[in-house]
Amino acid sequence: MDIRDRYPIVVTEHKAACQAFWQRYFGLVIVFDSDWFVLLGNETQGSVVAFMTPDHPSAPPGPQTYSGQGMCLELEVDDAEQALATLQQRGGAADYPLTREPFGQCRFGVRDPSGLWVDVVEQVTPEEGYWDKYMKAAARFSESD
């Protein structure tokens, strides 16, 4: 299978607010827009995220209106502190403060108008030995195959 593009579609009654949020705070541009669907992205990454109203005319089976739970969109950046500064300069605020996590991420989080959790992360060196107990468990598990 040759995947040409990838992006989540979030079914929400807040299509316009989500579009404005992603354009304002993350600098995404409209790739495609209609009354019931908008695809956002940028030149570097292509498509990033789409929003679709629950009353769209070409409803495939399955997608219900997103409840704001059970999904996280991870955005990896080179500098989480700078990404947060940009978000704040544009009038946004973090719902999870900039935190250096022991497992090797510096991150902050926000919710978009649909309730989607957006985790903005910079990969950093984890605390010494943090992953040892997890990696050993994985190695033991694979040895029993």
Rank of each mutant, 00 (worst) to 15 (best):
V120T: 05
S114E: 10
Y96W: 15
E43Y: 01
F21N: 14
D79H: 06
S47C: 03
D2H: 09
F141C: 07
F21V: 12
G104S: 05
G104K: 02
W131F: 15
V31W: 06
F141A: 15
T86E: 09
D55I: 07
A138C: 08
G91T: 11
G70I: 08
C18S: 15
V120I: 15
A138S: 10
C72V: 14
L39M: 13
P63R: 03
S47H: 13
C106E: 07
D35A: 13
S142C: 04
E122C: 05
T53V: 08
C106I: 06
L116Q: 04
G41R: 01
P8Q: 06
H14L: 03
T99S: 13
D79Q: 01
L98T: 09
G115R: 01
T86I: 10
V121N: 05
Y25E: 02
V118K: 02
G46I: 08
E81I: 00
P54D: 09
A50N: 06
V31E: 12
A17F: 03
R6A: 15
A17R: 12
R24K: 15
R6Y: 11
A16D: 15
I30T: 14
P102S: 09
A17C: 07
A138L: 13
V110T: 08
C72T: 14
W22L: 02
V38A: 01
P102C: 08
Q89G: 13
G109Q: 13
M71Y: 04
M1Y: 05
F32S: 09
Q19T: 14
K136G: 12
F32I: 02
Q64T: 12
D35L: 07
V121T: 11
T65V: 14
T44W: 01
G62Y: 09
K15E: 03
I3A: 12
Q69K: 06
A80D: 03
S47A: 13
F141W: 14
V77I: 03
A85D: 04
Q89I: 00
D145Q: 06
E101W: 12
R90S: 07
